[in-house]
Nucleic acid binder design. Structure first.
Lengths: 189, 189
DNA sequence: GGGTGCATGTAATGGGTTACATGATTCT
DNA sequence: AGAATCATGTAACCCATTACATGCACCC
């Protein structure tokens, strides 16, 4: 059995397990849920929901509203739930690496050391901020969603972020030190 | 000043600082250089080289060969070098996160624990293997390229990989333990 | 009067992979 | 005999972002 539609459609199915939602709702929910490791734009969400409805994986209901445009609320069907489960079981497809910071650092010898230092510093600050965000989310989740059977999985993804960001902050510090050493050596002659 | 062409063209310019190369050469060199954090396909490389030549950032020379097709060897021009430096100075553009493993783990409650365990295990093994590869490359680099002014930068990118992979292996182990705990708790009732 | 939020959607554009097409040589 | 290596390139396709288009209501 082949599963077309790729990860985007399945991400939407996953989010719709939480509650029936419109495309607008979904977009708004992402930063509070899978936002740390996944993103979707309206340009993907609306057409994808349409396709999911056409293939019977979600059901569409229109709610009329006064003043505001109609809301198109989508809810998961049994077929949709089954499709999601099938997709979850498939092995994770390896992602092609593309890390612009490392590319620039790799060629860092062609510009001044200050350039690399700035890139690394910005990167470090990003991850320091991320660490704070993760801590805040974990705290909130443990309070608000205590007992939810999904909570352990959510905490695992948060833990991933913490491990990674902590390691990358450490790397950043070491790298900044190494850049300073290079500078000293360059001046010494 | 705007720089079009994006990261791909600049990655090619960067690689061409090492030596003049054909598209084929470049593709072959990637796994031994920037392969851990960057990838390019022929479908990108050949058209990009063409465009770089049209805009005067690289120079094309054709070497005829017997039996084999002509080699089109590209070398960096002064303009190309300047362009690369300009690009290196630009802030790193933040990449949109897309991490399929975490997406699947986030929705892990919808399938059996074994599914998540398998995904995490595969991920862990990937990074354990990566750690060995990084160590081997670092050793080789320190021997073969001792004294090269670019060496420190190359080691920094390798160090990045080591820090990250080590952290992710640690996370994997903890997560597998957490999954085991969940299993025990589920059985206890 | 103007920004922000609600709410939908499409079109243009960019960026990328994969498959296809070609063809001689060399290794197994 | 058949696979792998050398070597180039294009076309079809997929996926995704951004900008555009619409329009009311509410708040300052």
């Amino acid at each position: 059995m082949k599963i077309e539609g790729g990860a985007t459609q399945n991400a939407l199915l996953g989010l719709l397990t939480m509650k029936p939602m419109s495309g607008y709702d979904i977009k708004a929910l992402i930063p509070q849920s899978i936002g740390n490791f996944w993103s979707e734009s309206y340009g993907q969400i609306y057409p994808s929901l349409k396709r999911l409805a056409e293939t019977g994986l979600v059901e569409k209901k229109t709610q009329r509203q006064k003043g505001k445009p109609d809301r198109h609320v989508y809810s998961l069907t049994e077929d949709g739930r089954a499709r999601l489960r099938d997709w979850l079981k498939l092995p994770v497809v390896a992602e092609v690496p593309r890390h612009e910071l490392l590319l620039k650092l790799f060629f860092g010898a062609h510009v001044s050391l200050g350039v690399s230092r700035e890139h690394v510093t910005a990167f470090m600050e990003e991850h320091e901020k991320a660490l704070k965000v993760y801590a805040a989310i974990a705290k909130r989740l443990r309070k608000e969603d205590a007992g939810d059977p999904q909570l352990p999985f959510w905490l695992m993804t948060l833990s991933f972020g913490r491990h990674r960001s902590a390691a990358l902050v450490k790397w950043s510090r070491e790298t900044l030190k190494a850049l300073d050493e290079l500078e000293k050596n360059a001046k010494r002659r």
